[in-house]
Structure formats: C-alpha cells, structure tokens
C-alpha cells in the first residue's frame, strides 16, 4: 500500500512516515506543501492521502477540492489542529473520509489509515479469506489451509495487495507503484523474484493443489483462487 503524506512540519512528517513504514509496512511519499501534494496526488498511485489542513501555497481544503474535482476517489484522512465542528462538517462534506485532531495517537492514526485503505478497496473486515487462504491484516499473518506461512515483509505486502481483489489482474507496474514509494523504478527487477518466492511458499504447503498466484505473461499477476466472478474495476 502506498500513502501520500502532505504535511509542512518536517519533524511530524518524518515521524508519521517512519511509523507508517515501520508498522503496517506502507510505502510513504511526503509532500511539504499543498501544491507539491497536489502534483504528486495527480499520479493516482496512492491508496490513501493523509492531509494536513494548514499548508503553505495551497491549504488542505483546497487540495481536497482539487482532488475531488478531478474525480480522484482516493481515501483522504485529514489531520487538523483547527477547533470547531463546522470545520469538520465542512471537510467531510468536501469529500474527506475521516479526520484526526492534533495531537493524535500514532496507533489510532495507523488503524484509521488501514481502515480507510480497506474501505477504499471495498472490504469491510481486516480478515481476508478465500477458500484455502486466510490473510489477517492486523497481525500481518497468512494461513494456507490453517497452516501459518512465514513470509518476508515484501512478500506479505504483495499478497495483501492482491487479496483485496481476488482474480483481478494487476500489472507489474501497478504493483510496483502501490508497494514502493517514489523510487519504485529501482525495484522493478526484484519484484518478479518476490512474487516467485511468494508463490513457492504458498504452494509448498499444499503440493499438487491449484497455484495461488498466476503469472500472465505480458499482463501481470492475479490471485487465482477466490470467487469465480472477477472484479474488473479497481
């Protein structure tokens, strides 16, 4: 999962980025003002945008309006130090999905970020289950037919991303964009290796069964097990 963090207070941005990378293992990009944030959000490769309200050049409210005006549906979590219910109502009405008042609890921020990403992808529960496979996004654990599978952080993140939409085909580029921050291109060679390792680990538990992850040459990857009707839209 890749998160855009727009926050002008450098120290706060550093801490939040560290926490989001450390905890749920998100890829995080930081923007220090509203215009930079707007430009980066224009790439549409984010699963969540965390937005401070008081920003130089373009404030959070303005950024949110621009975002929604170009029909960008990325979930937005607002960080606000402003008082008053009116501001919150105004923001939610302008298309924000959630808000946190400063000073906030880091754990709460992470939980809300995860929930927003999940919701943004149409899932209501942090536990994902398809026949023969269970992914617990809270504990970051994976069970294949009840057997715990030990995955590396990157492998887990790939699986977590795929299981949000079983049977949907994800291109290599899309996976890269959503799993790594701005320098994702440096990782383009290793992702194939990571997917290959992930597939091996999952299939080793149930030898001879249908493979969990399919590689479609020239098109990308998809989770082969799960409900029959493929979800087409992202």
């Amino acid at each position: 999962m890749r998160v855009l963090l727009v926050e002008d207070e450098v120290r706060l941005a550093d801490n939040l980025a560290d926490a989001l990378r450390d905890g749920p293992g998100f890829a995080v990009d930081c923007a220090l003002d509203g215009l930079d944030g707007d430009r980066m959000a224009g790439n549409r490769c984010y699963d969540l945008i965390i937005l401070d309200l008081m920003l130089p050049r373009l404030d959070g409210h303005g950024l949110l309006q621009r975002l929604r005006a170009r029909e960008d549906a990325t979930p937005v979590l607002i960080l606000t130090a402003k008082e008053g219910k009116e501001t919150i109502v105004e923001l939610l009405n302008a298309g924000a999905d959630d808000y946190l008042a400063k000073p906030f609890d880091l754990g709460e921020l992470i939980a809300r970020a995860k929930a927003l990403i999940r919701r943004g992808k149409g899932a209501a529960h942090p536990l994902f289950a398809v026949p023969g496979l269970e992914v617990n996004t809270l504990e970051q654990t994976v069970r294949r037919n009840g057997v715990l599978v030990d995955l590396s952080p990157t492998e887990y993140r790939i699986l977590e991303y795929l299981i949000h939409h079983p049977r949907r085909i994800f291109s290599k580029r899309e996976l890269l964009e959503h799993l790594y921050d701005y320098n994702w291109e440096h990782h383009s060679n290793v992702i194939e290796a990571h997917v290959s390792n992930l597939r091996k680990k999952l299939d080793a538990v149930l030898p001879g069964a249908e493979p969990v992850i399919e590689t479609l040459r020239g098109r990308g990857y998809r989770m082969a097990i799960g409900p029959e009707q493929a979800v087409v839209q992202s």
């Binding site: 207070e9 706060l12 801490n15 939040l16 926490a19 130090a81 008042a101 000073p103 880091l106």
Partner: peptide, 14 residues
Amino acid sequence: LKTAVAVVKSSLQL
C-alpha cells in the same frame, strides 16, 4: 502548539 505537541507525541510513540 498542537502541531508541536503532535511532533513530540509522535516521536515518543514511534
């Protein structure tokens, strides 16, 4: 003030 407090709090929680 809230931002400054948020920085301190997040540094410690991190």
